[in-house]
Simulated assay, not measured.
Amino acid sequence: MPHVQANGIELYYETLGDPADPALLLVMGLGAQLIDWPQGFCEQLAARGFSVVRFDNRDTGLSASRPEWGVPDVRAIVAGDRSTVPYLLADLARDTAGLLDALGLRRAHVVGLSMGGMIAQQLTVDHPERVASLCSIMSTTGDRSVGRATPEAAAVVGRPAAPDRATAVAGAVAAARIIGSPGFPTPEDELLRRAEAKYDRGYNPLGTLRQYAAIIASPDRTTALRGVTAPTVVVHGADDPLISVTGGEATAAAVPGADLVVIDGMGHDLPRALWPRIVDAIAANAVRAAVH
């Protein structure tokens, strides 16, 4: 099985495309697994001349999840007590840099989605030499005044752990409907297939809670992002209920020279109909890196 040691953490990864092509690293979001990057989306990226790497963040999927990371007290963390925070986004960024090290990749084009966008931003700030270009999708800067969720979408993040497979799958399908793209709805059978696959591969609600603690305990990146020199594109749905479009707008405003792509009808997912447009944005940004 393709596991590597990265920053002292065992991470599971998969690759797609010609290894001789420029590396493109995909970083997933809160509680999400590498299979949340749709296979067809990855194939389109590979067809554009990238060697695609996707992986499970710590505490998700087939990557390490350690009991000693404990159970975070989210209410206490919000109130300012960080004693139960197991790790920060900066640690997840170090994991990502460690993955590049383990794979022998000096630099990569980095694409992050939601929390993965936060990690990708932090990686670019902390390890700029590793990032050829940055694409931040449906993410935000850490400024709590932007990117606010609707009450319905916020409830999705706060739902309790499910007692069994059927409840977990049903909850995941319902959540996907709430945060998904109103202009590009995913068929019900596809939502069900994805939810079942994710549960069977690695259901880890405590890991998701620890990742959420990392998000809320990590500092605002706005000032640090002003120093980013990697070519950057920000992609966001105009109808995203989980991280509102103001999060993407703030990200693009913070990074000098960043392009902003706002897509009407897009929510907090990757609808099949939008894959070509998002792949185009990633590829065009990578070209900017080649002449940067």
Score class of each variant (00 low, 15 high):
Met1Ala: 14
Pro2Asp: 02
Gln5His: 09
Ala6Thr: 12
Asn7Arg: 07
Gly8Asp: 10
Leu11Phe: 05
Tyr13Trp: 13
Glu14Pro: 09
Thr15Arg: 12
Leu16Cys: 11
Asp18Gln: 01
Asp18Pro: 08
Ala20Asp: 14
Asp21Gln: 14
Asp21Tyr: 03
Ala23Pro: 14
Leu25Ile: 02
Leu30Glu: 02
Asp36Asn: 15
Gly49Lys: 05
Ser51Arg: 15
Val52Trp: 11
Val53Gln: 09
Asp56Ile: 03
Arg58Ser: 03
Arg58Met: 09
Thr60Glu: 10
Thr60Cys: 10
Gly61Ile: 03
Leu62Ala: 15
Ala64Pro: 01
Trp69Met: 02
Trp69His: 14
Val71Asn: 11
Arg75Tyr: 00
Ala76Cys: 08
Val78Arg: 14
Ala79Asp: 14
Ala79Trp: 06
Gly80Ser: 10
Ser83Gln: 10
Thr84Gly: 09
Val85Gln: 13
Tyr87Glu: 03
Tyr87Trp: 10
Leu88Tyr: 13
Leu89Asp: 11
Ala90Arg: 14
Ala90Met: 04
Arg94Tyr: 03
Arg94Ser: 13
Arg94Leu: 11
Arg94Trp: 06
Asp95Cys: 06
Asp95Glu: 05
Ala97Val: 02
Gly98His: 04
Gly98Trp: 04
Leu99Val: 07
Ala102Lys: 12
Gly104Met: 07
Arg107Ser: 13
Ala108Val: 06
Val110Tyr: 08
Val110Ser: 10
Ser114Gln: 02
Gly117Ala: 00
Gly117Tyr: 00
Gly117Met: 04
Gly117Ser: 06
Met118Lys: 08
Ile119Cys: 11
Ala120Leu: 00
Gln121Pro: 12
Gln122Val: 09
Asp126Trp: 06
His127Gly: 06
Val131Gln: 11
Met138Ser: 15
Thr140Trp: 13
Thr140His: 15
Thr141Gln: 10
Asp143Ile: 04
Arg148Leu: 12
Pro151Gly: 09
Glu152Ser: 11
Glu152Gln: 15
Glu152Cys: 02
Glu152Thr: 08
Ala155Lys: 13
Val157Ala: 11
Val157Lys: 05
Gly158Tyr: 04
Arg165Asp: 04
Ala166Arg: 14
Gly171Thr: 03
Val173Gly: 10
Ile179Met: 08
Ile179Ser: 05
Phe184Ala: 04
Pro185Ile: 00
Thr186Glu: 14
Glu188Gly: 00
Ala197Phe: 01
Tyr199Lys: 03
Asp200Phe: 01
Arg201Leu: 12
Tyr203Met: 02
Gly207His: 00
Gln211Lys: 09
Ala213Trp: 03
Ala217Ser: 15
Val228Tyr: 00
Val233Cys: 12
Val233Asp: 09
Asp240Tyr: 03
Pro241Asp: 02
Leu242Asn: 08
Ile243Phe: 03
Thr246Leu: 05
Ala250Met: 07
Thr251Asn: 07
Thr251Asp: 08
Ala252Met: 01
Gly257Tyr: 06
Asp259Arg: 15
Asp259Lys: 15
Asp259Leu: 10
Leu270Asn: 04
Leu270Cys: 05
Ala273Cys: 06
Pro276Gln: 05
Arg277His: 09
Val279Ala: 15
Val279Ile: 13
Ala281Ser: 11
Ala284Pro: 05
Asn285Cys: 13
Asn285Val: 06
Ala286Tyr: 00
Ala286Gln: 06
Val287Ala: 15
